[in-house]
Amino acid sequence: MRIYEAYFPPIYQFIRLRVGDPHAAEDLASDVFVKFVTALRGKNAPSHSLRGWLFRVARNTIADYYGKEKQVATETLEDWVPALDDDNPESQFMRTLDIERARQAMRMLAAEQQEVLILRFGQLLSLQETADVMNKTISAVKSLQFRAVDTLRRILGEMQLENQHD
């Protein structure tokens, strides 16, 4: 019912993880919902899967943003607090890595790899939904997510090694 309240956080999170600057992220999220409101008044209101529609628009908006602003966005790292996840202190690997490093590592991935991770793991979109949002086939998403995680794991491993050498 409350479309905005329900969908703003995921859309914002998605954008924010792709765009370092919180102000830019806020503007882009705002753009997404302006487009939504405009679409509702026009002829191309989303006819099904509102969530997919919003993520798709968000994705395009980010792409436009990076098209325009060629420069690398400036990061504000200081206030980034890991989300609390009390129940499972997974394993050795997990514990030694902090969230911040994971985020840095994620930002070293290709844009599509970042997206697939956010959508599949962060936002829990289904394979089909992710494929729709990313305009890919299901099997393309499967291999993309596999490669993304695999690459991320390698980057994290290297970061850890560097740390130990310091």
């Binding site: 703003f8 956080p9 914002y12 999170q13 924010r16 993880l17 919180p22 206030d79 980034w80 607090v81 890991p82 989300a83 996840d85 997974e90 394993s91 690997f93 997990m94 890595l97 969230i99 994971a102 985020r103 994620m106 991770l117 956010i118 599949r120 793991f121 962060g122 596999f146 995680v149 695999d150 991320l152 794991r153 994290l156």
Partner: peptide
């Protein structure tokens, strides 16, 4: 791989900011 995947799930901007 799955652990890394689960780790990315926890990478979210602070709730206050959102």
């Amino acid at each position: 791989m799955l652990e890394v995947g689960m780790l990315t799930r926890r990478v979210v901007p602070p709730a206050t900011e959102v």
